[in-house]
Design a protein around this nucleic acid. Structure first.
Lengths: 127, 127, 127, 127
DNA sequence: GTGGTCTAGACCACA
DNA sequence: GTGGTCTAGACCACG
């Protein structure tokens, strides 16, 4: 695991993102237990309080659930996960398109560029 | 002009990127004079040597031409600029797609997601 | 090693030339490690930064490869080296002929002069 | 006229070379008057004594003749001039070949390289 | 150790 | 003024 954080964003937020991606990629599945606050603090070499805050954040997004005395778990409500998945996708796409617009590329260029990349770059099949 | 740099990449390289984008966006046109190394050093609050390294880098890419005692100018060879534009587009798209794959999205999701974003997000017209 | 430089050309460039010639002459073979920037700085009594600029220059010409934390090495791509060899030969010949023309010698004089020099001066055999 | 001298050789000797070349190129013809010691001193921005020494050197080579009260003249003895011309040619060729050998080129490479350069580089005709 | 980056400050050639 | 070169000295990442 990469355990460096950049300074332009709060660490708890970066950590939350990181966990989100692990869930997205299927490294953490619905029902999986997250490391304890202390354990995660050591792994990511951040203060346990920061981890606490991260977990609270994720809890607010309904992505994880905390069970007193047992730990923190990835929600089993797959609807929520799918929703997050969708939202994050939109975000990434939006950022990408905005960046391209900033550099002066037109919508058409973006579309055709992407099409031809997907046709050639990944061998034509889906991932 | 944003004059902050992140530490994960050399300053001269970030500066070069920034200038590249200004050219791409048409803020700097072929034949335009760049600020002198000293001037740019002040604007970006970096050492003139670092600016010079940036300019040298851009010169190596043939994006910029330097005339002793006169200054540094955006090349008037638009072929080179178009080529750069194309190359950078490919790079951005590639990075985007790789990032999406890393997060577990399929090619199809990327395509349809982009299509619908472009239809709704920008009002349906081209930029 | 001669460690004097003339002022009509940048030191980093003269150093690069010198290393080029060492490679040409086979004193440095593909894969050989160059002295570290610091070491070479001492040998040539120039600043390590200047040596680094030299190495960077050679790297740009693909004559040399640099491995972080290990050092700088002569490329093992002999095609590039042969190409350089050929290019440099052309340059030297061109400079020679131009110089002779400047002094008023004709092509014929140059040719016959060279022929007779090679027959007598080196004993008639190839080097 | 280029009026810079490098430090690795005495100035009077560099000046003599320069005049030699002017004679070789026909800019100074047999019988021509050289500038006075004072005049030449100004032109080349060196001490008149140095010019004096240069002229004495050339006189020793029988290339110029000094006539008391009149000045210094290029010799009209064309044999001497032809001889010098021949000697200088040999020197240049010798230096060239030595340099090429130093860089590891064989006699054959030098010959064929020169031939093809003369055929292509100068348009096939003599100068 | 290695190379890579950056700064500060100096001097140069060119125009 | 412009860019170009060089030095001295510092700090960094990588291995």
């Amino acid at each position: 695991m990469t355990d460096t954080f950049h300074s332009s964003q709060p660490i708890y937020s970066q950590l939350a993102d990181r966990i989100n991606r692990q869930i997205l990629r299927g490294e953490l599945k619905p029902g999986d237990k997250l490391p304890s606050v202390r354990e995660m603090g050591i792994q990511a070499s951040v203060n346990p309080n920061t981890v606490q805050r991260t977990y609270r954040e994720l809890e607010g997004m309904k992505i994880v659930e905390t069970k007193r005395g047992q730990g923190t778990f990835v929600t089993e409500n797959t609807d929520i996960l799918n929703e997050m998945r969708e939202r994050l996708k939109q975000e990434e796409i939006s950022d990408f398109v905005k960046g391209m617009h900033d550099m002066g590329y037109t919508d058409l260029e973006i579309q055709t560029g992407l099409q031809s990349f997907l046709r050639n770059g990944t061998g034509g099949g889906d991932k």
